[in-house]
Design a protein around this nucleic acid. Structure first.
Lengths: 250, 250
DNA sequence: CCAGAGATGTGATTAAAGTAACAAAAAAAT
DNA sequence: ATTTTTTTGTTACTTTAATCACATCTCTGG
């Protein structure tokens, strides 16, 4: 048996239907078999067969059709599985930051898997300006209607889901930041605050230099950890926030 | 009746469970009641009740728990509902671009709802460098493992899901682009190629100026349309691609 | 410690989704 | 045109999910 692919001629009924189906699912994100059958004017059984024959694209989820990758593997950022670690602690730390937020301020928000929770927790009616350089942060900020978002561009670095500019030097020169929310991969009393890459460290330093107030947001599992790139001392921060709350620096 | 929210003390069993549940769903994107019940060591019924009581966050989809917004409203970009218009035509136009792609090239990809399809259609093993300034484009590119992504940052503009820099002038000065894929909101024989905002027009022009080859990708519904910001003539493009295929310029 | 409200579990019941087998229709090939 | 193959629809059937009512348990405040 051999499969002939149609070239110039019109698509077969089946192919056309499948394309329509994909479009409909893309549009609604989730489509019931019943509705799909009505929409494409075929029986539910036919819809089911179409989906099964294209299991790589479409999938059933209890009577509804969704894209196949929805439930399985999602590799948007390499962060995806690192995000799972200590999530409750990370969210708790971010929750402790929320009471200190003030409308009309300009904030810098660092990359990583901690601070997206902070964005999530910002009240929808709060007017802020947020400067960031990580794609996962931007993706969250965009969902907040009243926030003005500034993205520092550059080359994408998948492990941190961040963009790093050609020259960090006077990148932030035109910004004045009220508060910088900085995350870290390690906090050590002797070796200071560290992260994994040097580009990241440079950007963090640049942001801190242009900020009135510096806030370090980490869950306590980071204490005692040491990573390659040191970017600050604990005393450089005005506030330290963990899942146990805020502590002001002397 | 009044609801007391726990402050300092430990969370109630129910609250803790709900948090765990949210985390688990965030992690797996889609979790079966049976697994959730086993994971949290409660009965399926309890899981069901938890989900119903938090209908704003979680939702059932045929035995599986997913985030509530998955099937209903998703307001990440204002584009979301404009994207539905002429989707098949847009995808077809992008499909016609695919055969011309060459590995190792540097491409500029414009904003809008047309070109995300192009990113989607790029083979996973093709090595490219893509320069963009729209969040929806970046979100797609990130899913392609072999593509190097460069993002031009700036202030976010929701209607186009794009970032516009402080000064467009010599923004692209350090880039040399093999091919620029440009979209448009209007194509008119007399008034040329147009889009809705002037910032966007400026960026398109800048990209075209730094590109070897300029490709206009539009579905035919754009023909005859005229929008406020003109940025090029049809003759400025080396190729015009619609759902009916490519046409080379003389 | 005990009363009472809220939370959780259990099993029966109902509704819905998934499957299989076969008949009918359409398309392709001869 | 007619045979063959593919596609689609229908029905009955099996499995799974959702709901309900009630019993049990667990906190909390007096």
């Amino acid at each position: 048996m051999q499969i002939e692919h149609p070239r110039g001629r019109a698509l077969s009924r089946k192919e056309a239907r499948l394309q329509q189906l994909r479009d409909a699912v893309a549009k609604h994100k989730c489509l019931h078999v019943r509705d799909a059958a009505e929409l494409l004017d075929v029986s539910e059984m036919t819809i089911r067969r179409d989906v099964y024959e294209n299991a790589e694209i479409l999938q059933f989820l209890g009577g509804h059709i969704v894209f196949a990758d929805a439930g399985l593997h999602r590799p948007p950022y390499d962060l995806a599985h690192a995000a799972e670690l200590n999530e409750p602690a990370k969210r708790a730390a971010c929750a402790a930051c929320v009471p200190h937020l003030k409308s009309e301020e300009t904030l810098f928000v660092d990359c990583g898997t901690t601070l997206p929770h902070l964005i999530n927790l910002i009240p929808n009616d709060m007017e802020l300006t947020i400067i960031c350089y990580a794609l996962n942060i931007a993706d969250m900020v965009v969902r907040k209607p009243k926030i003005k978002l500034v993205m520092l561009g550059g080359v994408y670095h998948a492990p941190t889901a961040s963009f790093y500019p050609a020259e960090e030097d006077h990148l932030l020169g035109s910004f004045a930041i009220n508060r910088a929310y900085i995350s870290a991969a390690g906090v050590d009393r002797q070796l200071g605050v560290t992260c994994t890459t040097f580009r990241e460290a440079a950007l963090k330093r640049a942001a801190m230099a242009r900020s009135q107030e510096k806030v370090l947001v980490v869950d306590k599992s980071k204490f005692g950890q040491v990573k390659a790139a040191a970017f600050a001392h604990l005393t450089d921060f005005d506030m330290l926030v963990t899942e146990e709350g805020c502590s002001f620096q002397p």
